[in-house]
């Protein structure tokens, strides 16, 4: 077991974990933060995307021990102030989610992109090439991110 100390959504945690424990499983099963979803566990679908020290990260491709000392943000952290963010609100208004399973990863990946400045439509679409959605056909997601970028 390896000692792990980190901050998740602003809260400090100290845990003993097996080195092989994936960050996705650590968040979901050790901490009970089930908003982060697991879709493929080989880095293709993007459902498990969280932020590690401000950067969007595949939690299924990250060992929990690798984020020792880091600040992790998950989808649950987006609404720490209560209200939906402009990005979440835009997803709601544009029908950018159906089953909602890919949504947390979509939001966290998009939040990273938006943090870098106002993306073009092409940049949004390119970023989304790493995030799979089987429900929406993507266009509503693109529009939602465009709206959030403009706000």
């Amino acid at each position: 077991m390896t000692h792990l100390e980190l901050t998740v959504n602003g809260r400090r945690y100290r845990e003993e974990v097996e080195p092989r424990l994936l960050l996705s499983d650590f968040l979901r099963h050790t901490l009970g933060l089930t908003g982060t979803h697991v879709g493929c566990e080989h880095g293709v679908c993007g459902a498990c995307t969280v932020h590690v020290d401000g950067l969007a990260t595949r939690s299924c491709l990250t060992l929990a021990v690798q984020v020792d000392g880091a600040e992790v943000e998950t989808v649950e952290g987006l609404t720490r102030d209560g209200a939906l963010t402009a990005l979440q609100q835009a997803f709601h208004e544009h029908g950018a989610l159906q089953c909602g399973f890919c949504t947390p990863g979509m939001l966290m990946a998009a939040a990273d992109l938006l943090a870098r400045g106002r993306p073009t439509r092409e940049e949004i679409v390119d970023m989304l090439s790493g995030q799979i959605c089987r429900c929406t056909g993507y266009e509503p997601i693109v529009r939602a991110i465009e709206q959030a970028a403009a706000s």
């Binding site: 649950e76 939906l84 029908g95 989610l97």
Partner: peptide, 17 residues
């Protein structure tokens, strides 16, 4: 607008796992 969305957007959906 969908009544399902708010919980799902907050990561509060309740899926089998």
């Amino acid at each position: 607008l969908r009544l399902e969305d708010e919980a799902l957007l907050r990561g509060e959906g309740r899926f089998i796992d």
